[in-house]
C-alpha cells in the first residue's frame, strides 16, 4: 500500500476494505501487537516502509 505520512488509520481501513469489498466498520487495524485507532496519523503512529498492517475482524454476536 502506498501511504503518505498524514494518512490516518481510518483512511487505511477504508481503502483496504474498499479494495477487498469488505465493510470498513467491521474491522480493526493491527500493527504488530498494537491496535491502531481511527484518527491516528501514520507519522504519529511510527509506521515505516515495509511494516505489516492487518485487518482483523471485530465481530459482534447477539440475539
Amino acid at each position: 500500500m502506498d501511504l503518505e505520512s498524514d494518512n490516518t488509520v481510518e483512511e487505511i481501513i477504508e481503502s483496504a476494505a474498499s479494495f477487498w469489498s469488505k465493510d470498513p466498520g467491521a474491522y480493526v487495524l493491527k500493527w504488530g501487537r498494537k491496535l491502531l485507532r481511527g484518527g491516528l496519523m501514520i507519522s504519529d503512529a511510527g509506521i515505516r516502509d515495509g511494516d505489516t498492517l492487518e485487518l482483523i475482524p471485530d465481530p459482534e454476536g447477539g440475539i
Partner: peptide
C-alpha cells in the same frame, strides 16, 4: 446474556496471542 463482542482493551492481548 444476549450479546458479545471483544472489549476495546482486549484487542492488544488478542494480537499478542495471534502473533
Amino acid at each position: 446474556n444476549i450479546s458479545v463482542r471483544f472489549a476495546k482493551e482486549g484487542f492488544e492481548p488478542l494480537f499478542e496471542e495471534l502473533d
